[in-house]
Amino acid sequence: MHEGDPSKAVLSCRGVHKYLGDETQQVHVLKGVDINLYRGNTYAIVGPSGCGKSTLLYTLGLLDRQDEGHINIDGIDVTKASDEERTQIRNEKIGFVFQFHFLLPEFTATENLIIPMWKRGNRKALTMERRAHMLLQSVGLGDKTHRLANRLSGGEQQRVAIARALANDPPIVLADEPTGNLDVRNSNIVFDLLYQLSKKNNQAVLIVTHNPDIARRCDFILKMRDGVFTTMDS
């Protein structure tokens, strides 16, 4: 899917298979998925529930391990990477946005953004704080930087989650139903942010969504059925 020079893809996978469940009730979820994602593009994966969209997203995001196939992230073959290596790549190369914001409620918006930066450890405390403020500014929350995460509205929390996904300036952003929990107005705000920031920061954004409007506004739509991509529209 998405033909081009695979060596220039920021994320590529070949023949990825994934089984879920235990040995007695094993389900073949991904059945040989191939994909190339390039910087500066937004991709939507659509398909019926249970077709393997989220499983593919977590597998590509190294939250889950494929049973077969190869995955390459930003030039690094992560097919057989250890748990520690996969964790480090997640920190440096991938930003996640989930359906639920998963912010840490005891921390402020700024602190929630500092947490991934602190783990990466390549910035000083003051720089991290400045960058957190800049990112919050870019998602329209410049006036709520010191507000506790649980004191923000649902739309605001998801915008903080997007800013957090961009904290370490990753080349890849993976979003699982990022607007699934929001009303139409907030859905549009969140998607516009993801789209604009991906263009601005030259990032590849992969969005799993059930929302056809959101999918249509992406650069590419990848249709999935029974664990494989069927078509790609642009």
Partner: peptide, 8 residues
């Protein structure tokens, strides 16, 4: 979420 952000 911490694990997804790169915490070991």
């Amino acid at each position: 979420i911490l694990r997804s952000m790169g915490y070991t």
